[in-house]
Amino acid sequence: MKETLRLIIVLTVTAALTGALLALANKLTEEPIQAARRAALLDSLQLVLPDHDNEPDRETVTIDIGEQQHTFYPARRDGEFAGAAFTSSAQGYGGSITVMIGVDADDRIHAIRVLNHLETPGLGANITNPNFTGQFAGLDGRHPDRINLVRDHGDIQAVTAATVSSEAVVKAVDQGLKIYLAYRDQISATHGTE
């Protein structure tokens, strides 16, 4: 009985102490982690958005469509709407592919960036290559038929030996643009909270 009690006490104390120290560590690292996440997001936004002088990640517009929440990052220059960025996902070969798409005020794609993917290294993973993603720049969001693989009479040359991955990126861009265009007025009109 006495021994059992000792076992219980030792385990409880160990767990409680570890827990307390981790709570402290969590508190101390909270700020750097937030900063690192924001830096990564800003890095992507900077890449896909046209020139802007606002803080798109602080003026987001969130639209609920069914169960899903869609977040848009509007870009402004001198107070004028200059474009927006948003993320969109589609199923690739190895898993979900998430793409960030930036459009300018005329609904042309400014740039896209693949944020997350689980494609095969050396094959499907080449969808992150600028040679592939660069093809999207300048395409008009209002003419979605151009945003297709060459095979489907579009303008996008698929990555060699990675048609499924290439198609997934095209699909993600296409779907994201459709949602964006449907809510475009709401996104461009909303002024930031700042």
Binding site: V10, L11, T14, L21, A25, N26, I33, A36, A39, A40
Partner: peptide, 24 residues
Amino acid sequence: PCFIIIIAGFVTLVDLLLEGYAYS
């Protein structure tokens, strides 16, 4: 169990530190 709790504690610490200071 005590060893595992201690090890898990340090692993979580490393996880937090890496996310904060070596994000990529």
